[in-house]
Design a protein around this nucleic acid. Structure first.
Length: 397
DNA sequence: CCTCCACTGGAAACCTAGGCTC
DNA sequence: GAGCCTAGGTTTCCAGTGGAGG
């Protein structure tokens, strides 16, 4: 749908905008109150309250599927707590360990909140983990800081690196006094507890809290409230809101997804110059979300993983490890990329599988050995379009 | 029931880039 | 600047294996 810029501007000028306050649907918006989460909000507040009379709150572990309000409740309570305390000794640090990805970077993130002396800043590499912990502890002790460290998606850290870091952090008490550090762990995965050393577990889960998924009815109510803030009246009909709640919530009551869906549907409608969000907008928004997720996943891949993915896409009917490796080798020769070993490529295949970009399952073909049956789970045009942005593959896709 | 293929996936060694100390 | 350290990615090595074909 080619459209001149005159037309775009004209459309934008005429008619009232759909959105009155886009922020109300942004991912990090925290509303005045969190519906259906009173119990959890109060529980978190109770656990953290001791900080107000300078004693260390218990460590806390929060569970629940994505979009059940764990992060929102935590941020909400911490926000209030900070306002109440009014002291600069209270530091609320938030680190998402899936994004920080390694132990070292998780600590480096924490260090940013702790405000280290200029000569003790954490470089992005070069220090041992022990040294980084040392520097953080020193600073906390020296200025009696009261740190509440939120480790979001803590299960990622534990899965990849075990519980060493948590072990260190939970028993750093003596090195921090008179300051202290309390942990708030947030996990999507209940099973991650199995991988923890019993000592770490008992210390980390002094308090525990489970966040149940929202029901579709609850989602609808949440969306209705947000829609009233975000859109001009009538822009989002009850039917549209219900559909968003149903589409996003049918699987496991994911409020974040529901809110994203409503926002993007609003953007689609606005771009089309519609006065209200209709079903088509919502369906297109849903497609767009999936599409964006895939593009982003591809874009952020290391170059070797991209190469392997591209090699996979050459086989329409799926392939196996040996055949794929040959093709990958050829690709490397043509692009001047250094070819990795088959062992490593096998590992990369497992990573791509985990991201949901390919499916790679081990099959046995009897006498003809054991291998992975591999096929692409995403559209090859999307893949090629996205990879052509990368200079390594720009000419070859 | 046994063989034996074409890998899988764990473990350890190796490499690189960077900071630290002296 | 030499000689040390570490994290993270990769290679090297290799024992282990599900099941079709004998």
């Amino acid at each position: 749908m080619p459209r001149s810029i005159d037309e775009i501007f004209h459309r934008a000028k005429q008619g009232k905008p759909l959105f009155t306050d886009r922020k109300a649907l942004s991912p990090d918006f925290i509303p005045q109150s969190l519906p259906f989460r009173d119990e959890q909000t109060r529980a978190v507040a109770e656990v953290l309250a001791p900080v107000l009379h300078d004693s260390k709150p218990s460590n806390l572990l929060l569970y629940g599927k994505t979009g059940t309000g764990k992060t929102a409740v935590t941020r909400y309570v911490l926000g209030k707590l900070k306002a109440e305390a009014g002291s600069s000794a209270l530091i609320s640090a938030y680190v998402n360990t899936r994004i920080s990805a390694t132990e070292y970077r998780t600590l480096a993130e924490l260090a940013k909140f702790v405000d280290l002396p200029v000569d003790k800043q954490i470089p992005f590499t070069g220090l041992s983990i022990g040294e980084v912990i040392e520097r953080i502890c020193d600073s906390v002790r020296a200025s009696s800081k009261q740190v509440i460290l939120v480790l979001d998606e803590i299960d990622y850290l534990v899965k990849a690196y075990g519980d060493n870091l948590l072990y260190e952090l939970t028993r750093s008490g003596d090195r921090l006094a008179p300051g202290f550090l309390s942990l708030v762990g947030i996990s999507n995965d209940l099973k991650f507890k199995d991988e923890l050393d019993p000592r770490v577990l008992s210390s980390l889960s002094e308090e525990e809290l489970v966040f149940p998924p929202y029901t579709v009815d609850e989602l609808r109510e949440i969306l209705t409230e947000r829609a009233q803030m975000a859109f001009s009246p009538k822009a989002a009909s009850p039917a549209a809101v219900s559909l968003c709640a149903a589409m996003a919530g049918s699987e496991h009551g994911d409020a974040r997804r529901a809110i994203d869906l409503l926002r993007i549907a609003g953007e689609v409608a606005e771009r089309e110059g519609l006065k209200e969000i209709d079903e088509t907008c919502i369906r297109r928004a849903s497609d767009k979300m999936e599409h964006d997720r895939v593009e982003e996943a591809i874009r952020s891949l290391p170059v070797q993983n991209k190469a392997v993915l591209l090699a996979v896409s050459r086989f329409r009917e799926g392939t196996n490890t040996g055949e794929l490796y040959l093709s990958y080798n050829g690709l490397c020769r043509r692009t001047g990329l250094e070819a990795l070993t088959q062992r490593r490529v096998s590992g990369i295949l497992a990573e791509l599988d985990l991201l949901g970009l390919i499916e790679a399952s081990v099959v046995s073909k009897g006498r003809r050995g054991r291998t992975k049956r591999i096929h692409l789970l995403i559209g090859s045009e999307t893949l090629e379009k996205t990879l052509s942005e990368d200079t390594t593959f720009g000419t070859i896709t």
